[in-house]
């Protein structure tokens, strides 16, 4: 059975308060789909990091929250999109290599966020904004 998208909600990220709304949306969906408390915290924290990136570094954008099923497990996919300055391949590599020495750089939190989710992709280039997609699945 293939991947099915059961529902999708788009949330704007224009104000600081929107970061908390994205976080709450991720938490509510994860809990309703039976994610355990650790997986819920991981997804919610990843959402918080990425929503903040959109707001701080991307000058605003949006988050799409999708309710997934692969026939056996439930999943949550979140797509964070901004039309900010974007990153060069070298910037992205640095951001993903991580650490927090680059706290003020465009890649804040990317390396840590990647470790919290099952699937993680970044699409970015200078002048073209950044799109980050994360997916987390229930274990069983």
């Amino acid at each position: 059975m293939g991947l099915r998208v059961l529902d999708a909600v788009e949330l704007p990220i224009r104000y600081e308060a929107n970061i908390a709304e994205v976080r709450r949306s991720a938490r509510a969906l994860a809990q309703s789909r039976g994610f355990d408390s650790f997986a819920t915290a991981a997804l919610t924290t990843a959402a918080s990091e990425l929503a903040r990136n959109v707001w701080v570094h991307g000058g605003g954008g949006s988050a799409v929250v999708e309710d997934l099923s692969d026939g056996q497990r439930s999943g949550v996919r979140m797509t964070f999109r901004d039309s900010g300055p974007g990153m060069s391949p070298a910037d992205l590599e640095r951001a993903l290599a991580g650490g927090f020495s680059t706290a003020r750089s465009l890649g804040l939190g990317l390396s840590g966020t990647r470790r919290l989710v099952d699937e993680f992709t970044v699409d970015t280039r200078p002048g073209a904004g950044t799109v980050v997609v994360i997916t987390k699945w229930t274990r069983f």
Binding site: A41, F100, R115
Partner: peptide, 12 residues
């Protein structure tokens, strides 16, 4: 526990 686990996994 969930907060501790998440922060350490992120390297913080």
């Amino acid at each position: 526990p969930e907060v501790a686990a998440t922060l350490v996994r992120m390297g913080y």
